[in-house]
């Protein structure tokens, strides 16, 4: 690996100062499970590596029934799936955090890092999109909020400007009778990258769906919000016909590629299958809430 300078600021101001000073030659490190591999391969070559795990705002996990979840960008996945409150209120996000790589990876990797890495196949990103999560960024010009579905602009690239830092993800509180779910397809049981991943969050009142959001991963250059599929469910009876209609609209929006993990045709098929299964799993949970 090339020579680097390592900084471990303990406040947001310090971190933004360092990132702003060094611009493109600086990169934050959370778990390092993507960054160190990319640095070894020469894909990313930051001269300044800024460890943001000593900043309280980036490692905290705070849930409030009224305002929802503030998820620090650097909080490791293990702290998400070992958190009983999160397992109760955001089971889909927990599912996604619990299937990234191995337990060794989950001890280090963070949801914020997963998002900032900008992979179209990131597991937690469709789960965040389903929940309507917003990313809070702080930079030299102040702070701004960006919807997660608008965060990744192309494979490996995000809206983050030089000097900016993703601080936390803001996730609304789950409404009554709602729940989320995340399902991905991989050709083995553990330890692989999604061929397709679908996140869904729905709210049911009786047999009617009153809110729905579907996020899709590995079906386009960036993670997607399946807007038409989601809107088609709202206000309708939540039954097999509505689910099938949403699945078809999700397939229409997907623009997958052929690669070593699967063909575009297979991925479109999976979008349908996983949209149905994820909606059904979310609904089953919502009926209990």
């Amino acid at each position: 690996m090339h020579e680097i300078h390592y900084e471990a600021p303990t406040s947001l101001e310090q971190a933004v100062g360092i990132l702003a000073k060094h611009g493109d030659s600086a990169r934050p490190i959370c778990g390092g499970t993507d960054l160190l591999i990319q640095m070894r391969a020469g894909v990313r070559r930051p001269h300044y590596v800024v460890d943001v795990k000593h900043i309280a705002a980036l490692t905290g996990i705070a849930f409030d029934p009224k305002s929802g979840l503030r998820l620090g960008a650097a909080a490791p996945c293990i702290e998400i799936f070992e958190n009983a409150t999160l397992r109760r209120h955001y089971p889909g996000l927990v599912e996604a955090a619990h299937l990234i790589g191995s337990l060794q990876i989950q001890s280090r990797a963070s949801v914020g890092g997963n998002l900032c890495n900008g992979s179209p196949a990131a597991d937690t990103t469709p789960a965040l999109i389903a929940l309507g999560a917003v990313a809070r960024l702080v930079g030299p010009k102040g702070e701004r909020q960006v919807k997660v579905e608008e965060f990744v602009v192309s494979p490996g690239r995000t809206v983050i400007q030089p000097g900016e830092l993703l601080v936390e993800l803001l996730i609304p509180p789950p409404p009554p009778h709602s729940a989320d779910a995340y399902i991905r397809f991989i050709p083995r049981n553990e330890m692989d990258i999604a061929v397709v991943g679908i996140g869904a969050a729905i709210t049911l009142e009786g047999d009617r769906c009153t809110a729905a959001r579907i996020g899709m991963g590995a079906v386009a250059p960036t993670p997607l919000f399946a807007a038409k599929a989601s809107q088609a469910l709202v206000g309708k009876k939540f039954d097999a016909v509505a689910i099938e209609n949403a699945a078809q609209l999700a397939i229409e929006q997907a623009s997958p590629i052929d690669d070593m993990r699967g063909t575009a045709e297979f991925r479109r098929h999976l979008v349908g299958v996983l949209t149905r299964r994820t909606l059904e799993r979310a609904a089953e949970r919502a009926r209990r809430n």
């Binding site: 390592y6 390092g32 795990k53 001890s107």
Partner: peptide, 20 residues
Amino acid sequence: TILVDGRPVCSCLMLGVEAQ
């Protein structure tokens, strides 16, 4: 694999300075 604060971690994916 080693344990860091009791959690399994790939020591190839952590910088030595992060062990502080």
